[in-house]
């Protein structure tokens, strides 16, 4: 158990009449890179929200970074968990620049009543350099493209100095080049920092090659888990996505060609 950082035991989550997770159990080791794959509505995002304390459990237990998640410790847990969501719809006239948005990542760490100091701004600038966005640091956040906004979101997440790195469909709605750039960046961050990473996607072509383990989800349940080579077979994907094997093969061929 010593190197386990996430231990989900029989988690059930429900949004009103919809059951999003139906008794999910999962263990993640420190430094692991887990890809969570499945069709829309499989419960992938909900799984991430119970790891960062945003989701509410109906039953089961979630142990993250040494503590069981309760209704009262979500705030303190979230300070240690970096979360990158899908491309957000940001007001193009929002009066904030890129550097200020990345600084938000440090606000939780700073706590109430403390202002960012010189060290905090140095961390922000370092993270902007890491994601290749230093040249746009003073640009209004609403003026960035989707790919650039995701780089900023990753920089903001890293400025938080997280112990876990959660990414929820970070490449959704991005163009092909931006998708590849983000995937390479995520791989670079994981490799250089050995940051425990959970990467959710519904699109197999957006699954980083760096994943050492894949979790397949369907209808609120874990449908399979293991190494990408063993699990991501045409037959498994055909059943997971409810598609004929020939269609899965064609789709994967397309993904290779692009």
């Amino acid at each position: 158990m010593s190197d386990i950082v996430i231990n989900i035991e029989n988690a059930v989550v429900s949004y009103r009449e919809d059951v999003a997770l139906r008794g999910v159990s999962l263990k993640v080791k420190s430094g692991g890179f887990v890809g969570i794959v499945g069709p829309n509505g499989a419960g992938k995002t909900t799984l991430l929200t119970i790891v960062n304390g945003m989701g509410k459990l109906l039953s089961g237990r979630v142990w993250v970074l040494g503590d069981y998640l309760t209704s009262g410790n979500g705030h303190s847990l979230r300070k240690k968990v970096g979360y990158v969501a899908q491309v957000q719809n940001i007001d193009p006239r929002m009066p904030m620049n890129v550097r200020e948005v990345v600084m938000i990542g440090r606000y939780g760490l700073l706590g109430l009543l403390r202002r960012p100091g010189k060290h905090d701004w140095e961390v922000v600038d370092e993270m902007l350099a890491l994601v290749g966005m230093s040249h746009l640091a003073q640009r209004p956040i609403g003026h960035l493209s989707g790919g650039e906004q995701q780089r900023v979101a990753i920089a903001r997440c890293l400025a938080q100095e997280p112990e876990l790195f959660l990414l929820d469909e970070p490449t959704a709605s991005l163009d092909w080049k931006a998708q590849i750039d983000i995937l390479e960046l995520v791989k670079l961050i994981h490799d250089s920092r050995r940051l425990t990473t959970l990467f959710v996607t519904h699109d197999l072509s957006s699954l980083p090659m760096a994943c050492d383990r894949v979790v397949l989800m369907r209808e609120g349940l874990i449908w399979g888990e293991g190494s990408p080579e063993k699990l991501l077979t045409d037959n498994n994907l055909s059943q997971l996505y409810d598609m004929p094997v020939s269609a899965v093969k064609a789709r994967r061929q397309e993904a290779i060609l692009v």
Partner: peptide
């Protein structure tokens, strides 16, 4: 400032 920018994002950093 964080809450104005994005409520869910503000929540996610604590």
């Amino acid at each position: 400032q964080a809450t104005i920018f994005h409520r869910d994002m503000a929540r996610s950093v604590g």
